[in-house]
Design a protein around this nucleic acid. Structure first.
Lengths: 219, 219, 219, 219
DNA sequence: CATGAATGAGCTTTCATTCAT
DNA sequence: CATGAATGAAAGCTCATTCAT
């Protein structure tokens, strides 16, 4: 089980180099985007050399693809750790909503790297062989809560888990992604904990309003 | 065709140079972001010279600030042209929702330039003297529809126009901004007109669900 | 007539920069070939900056094309300065032969830059618009001597000026181009003036043998 | 196909590695010169590793020296296989001429690698211990034909085998070496078989004209 | 108002070579 | 014998910006 113990020194040294380059890449690309983040800054942050980026990732774009895959991997990993109480579907949906909204808040690198990828019209994610397998887990969380609630007669049948997932993501993502222009625009600091909590509550209410059966809401 | 003979007063020529540089800047920054868009590409697209950018805008950042102001100006201008039938508040809200969602769809430059500004943590928008005056008109549209509906007893009193505006923006913006990664993620082309229309309908329903009085929804 | 006097300072400064870059390029490419000659060495030799090479020539290959054109231009210019006494065709042919053989000896940059271009399979010369106009003058020299001699009944009619030009060039060029390997190969310093003079005499005899009418040679 | 099971004694494997590196080096240096050919490309072409070049040849220059020796070895080997009918000296000379001219045509790697070595002023060939022994065989071919003809009273006594060898080489080598610039210069494809045959015939005639006794040519 | 020329720092990438097993 | 990993210099080229009229 313990790979660490059976590794030869050179292998583990290599793994460390590769890993630290990848970690540094995620950080730098998150701060400055693909264009703005230089390989020199990445290799320096990783305490390695420019050359090693080309050794392990081919070129800057190869590193960006790897960074993209890495943030998706972490995203799915975090989602996998969420447990839903499907016996209480409304609570399960709330759990899912809060998870996503907080994930975007706590992982700005996920948000900014995805923005950078979208600026480049998704050319790297389509290169990645693993791209297709990324989506299922994340939507699955919403899907499980929704279907449980539908079976219990709590949720509407004419709403799809895809739309609900997009709605949750949109509201969580946008709040984080555009916080600086919105803060200037609205004259309020969106990152403020009180402000944030207000928004989280609103998202929960809005999503529930969209999902709940109207008849359920009475009484 | 002789430039010499047709030249207009110098002020007007200057305006043309300045305007075409600004227009080119919006386009280039929209395509490639602040870092990725070079002054050379902008001046070439404007059929002018690098030097003129420094003459009119001081430096690259000054040009970006101007571009930012320009897209906000257009955004507010478009909003001002929308007329709401406040006698029918639900219809008025629908009009507002559709306007915003479609604006983001039809103005990708607005989306990508704002993303670029947020990547830089809003440092340019805060430099702009006009920043504060940008927000009012846009939120005003939602505000007018909401208050009209509240007075008519149709809309909830515990929902703010700010939250509703953010909700609408989030859902419209995110769909456009992240279309490439989402398309790969979901295996669907979000830009497809059928897909888009489905989303627009969903946004209208979701926002209405969040705004409407529960009692109204029965019967 | 005097362009120098009517030029504005900036123009002449520019001309100097461009000219010195081109001159340095010929020298460096001659010493080290296209691949081996770095833009840094060229710009330094020209007491200018790397950047100016891109300003004036687009890129390294553009500079190489310009260098290629320059050495051809000089070659043709030198040939134009040769005057043949066509009344004495044999002497005229000798003059032409000696001119070519000495030109290759005295202009090693012509030889090495052409070698570099041939290593790259002539991809740059075919880019040059002026390529086609290069050949005529050089061959013309041989052509004039040959036809004069043919009309005088001294030279064979079944030998073409093209073949004669190639023969002369081959013998002059090869001696210079391959002098280092030949010197090692033969154990003789080919650059030695005595050695060189012997070769020049031999070339003159060989070419005359190829051109002269057999009947002429008797008596 | 299992490498493990078919592996030969280690000495033989080493020979294979060394040989394939050397073969690849000749090819790459022929295509791109010493400077333009990278060790990575060579080791990749040989399906080996960069490190092996340093193991067997010390460094890149050592490999180039080995490649130089290799092409000379092949050149001498080919010459050794030529048999001359010394009873018919003119025919023997023709055989020698045709051999050389065709060798340069059929072995462009010989031509380009020698050009590369001359660009570097012969610094590698002088390092090679075997350099001195290279010349004798090649000149020997011309020498045997010439002396046979001189003894038979067919060839002039005032022409040396060295000059004749240089003349043949020059005309054969230059036609191949400079084919690309010449083709552009002359507006003719020199590699065309008809063109080539014309040149081969001309070389044979020219060399014979230079070698033959004048008195012989009459009658 | 406008422009050609110049600048130097920075960019991504490739180079030949050595280290450590 | 062989190999994966590491190294630092140097390559070609682009960047935003300023100079000098």
């Amino acid at each position: 089980m313990n790979k660490q113990s059976t590794r030869r020194p050179s292998q583990s040294r290599a793994r460390n180099t590769r890993d630290s380059l990848l970690k540094a890449a995620v950080q730098v690309f998150a701060e400055s985007g693909l264009t703005g983040g230089s390989v020199a800054r990445i290799s320096k942050l990783a305490q390695s050399h420019d050359r090693m980026i080309y050794y392990y990732f081919g070129n800057k774009e190869g590193l960006f693809v790897a960074a993209l895959e890495e943030i998706y991997r972490q995203y799915n990993e975090a989602e996998s750790a969420v447990t839903l109480n499907l016996a209480a579907p409304i609570e399960a949906l709330e759990t899912a909503i809060v998870f996503f909204v907080r994930y975007f808040r706590d992982h700005p690198e996920f948000v900014t790297v995805l923005n950078s990828e979208n600026l480049h019209r998704g050319k790297h994610i389509s290169q990645s062989l693993r791209a297709s397998q990324f989506s299922k887990p994340a939507i699955g969380l919403v899907h499980r809560a929704l279907t449980a609630g539908q079976q219990a007669g709590l949720f509407r049948h004419d709403v799809s888990s895809r739309d609900l997932y997009l709605m949750i993501s949109a509201m969580g993502y946008f709040y984080q992604s555009n916080q600086y222009t919105l803060s200037a625009f609205l004259g309020q600091r969106l990152a403020d904990p009180v402000q944030y909590q207000h928004w989280e509550d609103f998202v929960v209410q809005a999503v529930k309003s969209a999902a709940l059966n109207t008849s359920q809401k009475i009484g």
